[in-house]
Structure formats: C-alpha cells, structure tokens
C-alpha cells in the first residue's frame, strides 16, 4: 500500500456491486479499499473507527438511508468525505445530500470511470459533478432566491444536522436521556446541543424551539 493511496470505504447493500467495486477500485494504483459494509449500522461504526478519506455510501441503504448516514458522519467524523451513490437525478435529493454534508453525488447510471474521477476530485477538495447535475443545482439556487426562500435556507443553515435531529426528537416529546439513547450519544452531549440550539436561535425554551422549527418546516413530521 502506497502512502499516497486514497483510503476508501464502500457501503452498499447490493452485494454484486459492492464486490465488483472493491476489486475494480482496488486495481487503481492510488486507491486502497479499507473496508466495506452492507448495512447502515456497520457502515457508521466502521467508518468512525477506520476514518477513511473517502466513503462511498449508497443512498438506498436499509434502516438508515445514505442521507442519514451522511448527516451522522458529517457530525462525528467531518474529515471523511462522503460520496453518495444515487439512483435518480433528482435535484431535491442532490441538494439534500449536499446540505447533509456530502462532498459528492454520483449516479449509479454513471460509468465506473466517472466514479473514479469523482473520488480523486473529492479527495482534492474539489466538487465534481456532471453538467446536468450542475444545471439542476443552479436551477435550484435560482428557485430558492426568486421565491424568497433564501432567508429560510439561511436560518436552517445555522443549525447542524445533529441539532436538527435533536430538535425533531424534542418535538416528539423525548427527554434528553431518551434523545441520547436514540442518537447513540451521551446525555451531556444532548444537553450541549440543546444549549447551542437555544443560543444560536436566541430562544429560551424547548417549547419555543419546537415552535420555531415547526414554523420553518424543519420538522420531519410536521403536525
């Protein structure tokens, strides 16, 4: 293994694709596949442990999907650059992945060579996407601006993915201890998140936080 090799982790529940990618990526002189997973729990645990430079995550992973996995990794191991393997060219999905912290998005309809180029670009801290995907992103940004949604976007950007998770669980009526159990983190960490949320939003209670999130449609289950 060369010291310059890009360490890659692959998570996909499609065994055939997973096995093939391990071999094909392993044939690249500057790549080394350090681990694989076919379920989301194992993927998160291994990636946190192995800390690869690039993680390829299938959007359709069972239990926690690629988007949720990306949010967790972005919070807990931000140095790991996540590339989502997506099935459809949906602007909303691509935007959601970027907002969750993904560094790249590759359609499975793309060629293997495109995937290789994307891995190298992302590793160099460059964004790499198809002209079609770039067009979708420009269109989405224009839409947000023209509809006056830029303020909503700016508001939500203030909160990290993990903080949004915490707000959603608060809205479900969970205590700090229950939230900690749900997110596999310490109760003190939840308290810190709640403190940061109140501080960022200049609010004074959990109730106000839920109201704020509900008005801005930040809740996954908006009653």
């Amino acid at each position: 293994m060369s010291t310059e090799s890009i360490r890659i982790f692959i998570a996909d529940d499609n065994c055939l694709l997973l096995e093939g990618l391990v071999i094909m990526l392993g044939e690249q002189k500057d790549f080394v596949v350090t681990g694989t997973a076919s379920d989301s729990r194992s993927a998160v645990e291994q990636i946190k442990d192995l800390k690869p430079e690039v993680a390829l995550i299938d959007i359709g992973m069972p239990e926690k999907d690629g988007l949720e996995i990306t949010q967790i990794l972005h919070e807990d191991v931000p140095d790991v650059k996540v590339i989502i393997l997506g099935l459809v060219d949906l602007t909303d999905e691509i935007m959601a992945c970027i907002e969750a912290g993904a560094a790249g998005y590759v359609l499975k309809e793309s060629s293997f060579d495109h995937l290789v180029d994307t891995i190298r670009s992302v590793h160099r801290n460059e964004a790499f996407c198809s002209p079609r995907m770039a067009a979708s992103l420009f269109s989405r940004i224009a839409e947000l601006t023209s509809e006056g949604k830029s303020q909503i976007l700016a508001d939500s950007v203030k909160l990290s993915g993990r903080e949004l998770d915490v707000i959603n669980l608060i809205a479900e009526g969970l205590s700090n201890k229950e939230i900690a159990k749900e997110l596999f983190i310490e109760t003190q960490t939840v308290k810190n998140h709640v403190h940061n949320i109140l501080d960022k939003l200049q609010l004074h209670s959990r109730f106000e936080t839920v109201q704020y999130a509900r008005e801005r449609k930040l809740l996954k289950k908006n009653p």
Binding site: G20, K108, E109, S110, L115
Partner: peptide, 13 residues
C-alpha cells in the same frame, strides 16, 4: 444491464 455502474462491474467480472 443498467445502471451503468453495475454494467461496468459485470463487464469487469
């Protein structure tokens, strides 16, 4: 075969 990525993997295999 589709998607292309799987097609490339099968071809390689």
């Amino acid at each position: 075969s589709r998607p292309k990525l799987l097609s490339d993997v099968l071809r390689n295999l």
